Simulated assay, not measured.
Amino acid sequence: MRMVNPEQLQHLARLLNDRGGVTDDLTAAFTRTRQQGVTDRLAALKPLHHWVDDTAVDLRRRAGYAYLEDGKPMLALATWAGGGTKDAKWRSKESLADWEDRIKPKILTLIPGLAPLGAVGDAKAIVHDGGLAVFHGINMTKILAGNSLREGWLGSLKNNAALSMQNSDSVKVRWLGTILERVNPALRSL
């Protein structure tokens, strides 16, 4: 039986190596001793610097496992990537799918080495959705215009234009009028 609160583990990890934490304090102490020329007095604390970083990573890893055991895989990924739960909190009236769509790009940008991938993923989604909108818009216009050309307002306009062209003095224009009169697209449904 597990008796650990993942949020407390994350808080402890933040205290160790986030801004203003133990890592910053150790760095400041080593900088001051170096400036004063007494680094030998803090020599025993040098291993503590690595221990703090390693422990913070381990605490985040354990918090991620705790989130997995609680059935919160997205929080586990956010934790392992070094992010907190503040961005991963559920908003009121937000569905699970909406929450996952909102949190996935944030998680990707938190994983070292994959930071640009989140922005690219968002751009890819926008381009994909935009492309679908353009594709369906063009197809709908093609269908509606074709149906109107066959049986609607554009059909009567086409017939009037073809008749005017066939009464022309130019042979090529009369020929084009004949071709225009024969245009009869298939009737399509949406």
Score class of each variant (00 low, 15 high):
Arg2Asn: 13
Arg2Tyr: 01
Arg2Gln: 10
Met3Asp: 13
Gln8Lys: 11
Arg14Tyr: 01
Leu15Ile: 14
Leu15Asn: 02
Leu16Ser: 15
Asn17Asp: 13
Arg19Leu: 04
Arg19Lys: 11
Gly21Arg: 07
Val22Cys: 00
Leu26Ile: 00
Ala28Trp: 07
Ala28Thr: 15
Thr33His: 04
Gln36Ala: 06
Val38Lys: 12
Thr39Lys: 15
Arg41Asn: 00
Leu42Asn: 04
Leu42Val: 10
Ala44Lys: 04
Ala44Ile: 11
Lys46Cys: 02
His49Lys: 14
His49Asn: 09
His50Leu: 10
His50Lys: 07
His50Asp: 12
Val52Ile: 14
Asp54Asn: 10
Asp54Pro: 01
Thr55Ala: 01
Thr55Asn: 01
Val57Met: 10
Leu59Met: 00
Arg60Leu: 07
Arg60Phe: 02
Arg61Gln: 05
Arg61Tyr: 10
Gly64Leu: 07
Tyr65Asn: 09
Ala66His: 00
Tyr67Leu: 14
Leu68Arg: 06
Glu69Trp: 01
Asp70Pro: 05
Gly71Asn: 11
Gly71Met: 05
Met74Ala: 10
Ala76Trp: 00
Gly82Asn: 09
Thr85Ala: 08
Asp87Asn: 02
Asp87Met: 04
Ala88Tyr: 00
Arg91Asp: 11
Ser92Val: 13
Lys93Ala: 15
Glu94Val: 11
Glu94Phe: 09
Leu96Ile: 15
Ala97His: 04
Asp98Tyr: 12
Glu100Gln: 13
Arg102Ala: 03
Arg102Thr: 01
Ile103Cys: 00
Ile103His: 03
Lys104His: 06
Lys106Ile: 15
Ile107Pro: 02
Thr109Ile: 05
Thr109Arg: 08
Leu110Gln: 09
Ile111Thr: 12
Ile111Met: 15
Pro112Ala: 07
Leu114Asn: 11
Leu114Ala: 08
Ala115Lys: 07
Pro116Trp: 10
Leu117Glu: 13
Leu117Ser: 12
Ala119Met: 08
Gly121Ile: 02
Ala125Leu: 08
Ile126Gly: 08
Ile126Val: 12
Ile126Gln: 14
Val127Asp: 11
His128Pro: 01
His128Arg: 04
Asp129Arg: 12
Leu132Gln: 13
Phe135Trp: 08
His136Lys: 14
Ile138Val: 13
Ile138Asn: 01
Asn139Ser: 13
Met140Ser: 10
Ile143Val: 12
Leu144Tyr: 06
Ala145Phe: 09
Gly146Trp: 15
Asn147Thr: 12
Asn147Gly: 05
Leu149Ile: 14
Arg150Val: 04
Arg150Thr: 07
Arg150Lys: 09
Gly152Ser: 12
Leu154Phe: 10
Gly155Ile: 01
Ser156Asn: 09
Leu157Cys: 04
Lys158Phe: 07
Ala161Trp: 00
Leu163Val: 06
Asp169Glu: 13
Asp169Asn: 11
Leu176His: 12
Thr178Phe: 11
Thr178Val: 10
Ile179Tyr: 03
Ile179Ala: 09
Ile179Gln: 06
Leu180Ala: 08
Glu181Ile: 08
Arg182Tyr: 12
Ala186Lys: 15
Ala186Tyr: 07
Arg188Tyr: 03
Leu190Asn: 14
Leu190His: 08
